[in-house]
């Protein structure tokens, strides 16, 4: 990279790994509600990545046959995995609504500070409501939530 570096790459003497603007370094910001939402979008995305591998493992066990599937079913029924799956449900709803908010930004909508704060609150409310509904009103949700 020479003197023609784009503006986001020329201020620090560091090797840059990507030819795109990198995310801002968080230490320079005062914690704010919208920043926490942004971090949660990344965290829930990473968590869902891991859960994607669990999904593949579950389907692979089903394809191997009843014995392998029984092993997988016992694994997924353990308390630890039920907590993992309940968190996966929360991450799913959060990442879905936060993702829709991101797509709206990509389309050019909602950049006003007031709108961004409002859409953030709306998104969290939608995710929380969807999580509560799926945990309480579906058999699988009640199973992972430990409800009768």
């Amino acid at each position: 990279m020479g003197s023609t570096d784009p503006f986001w790459q020329n201020s620090l003497a560091m090797p840059y790994p990507a030819d795109r603007p990198l995310s801002p370094h968080l230490q320079v910001y005062r914690p704010m509600y919208t920043i926490v939402l942004s971090i949660l979008h990344r965290a829930s995305g990473l968590y869902l990545s891991v859960c994607g591998f669990l999904f593949v493992g579950w389907l692979f066990a089903a394809a191997l046959g009843p014995d392998a599937y029984a092993c997988a079913a016992a694994f997924f029924s353990s308390l630890a995995l039920r907590i993992v799956l309940a968190l996966a449900l929360a991450a799913f709803w959060y990442h879905l609504f936060a993702g829709v908010r991101h797509l709206a930004w990509d389309a050019g909508y909602g950049f006003e500070k007031r709108t961004a704060r409002l859409s953030g609150r709306l998104m969290v409310a939608c995710a929380a409501a969807a999580l509560a509904l799926t945990l309480v009103f579906t058999p699988a949700g009640r199973f992972v939530a430990g409800l009768p």
Partner: peptide, 19 residues
Amino acid sequence: IPLGLWFLVALLRQPSLEH
């Protein structure tokens, strides 16, 4: 968005998750 919702709804609507 549609594929994730399809999977979640289908998963939660199964009568059980036996093999």
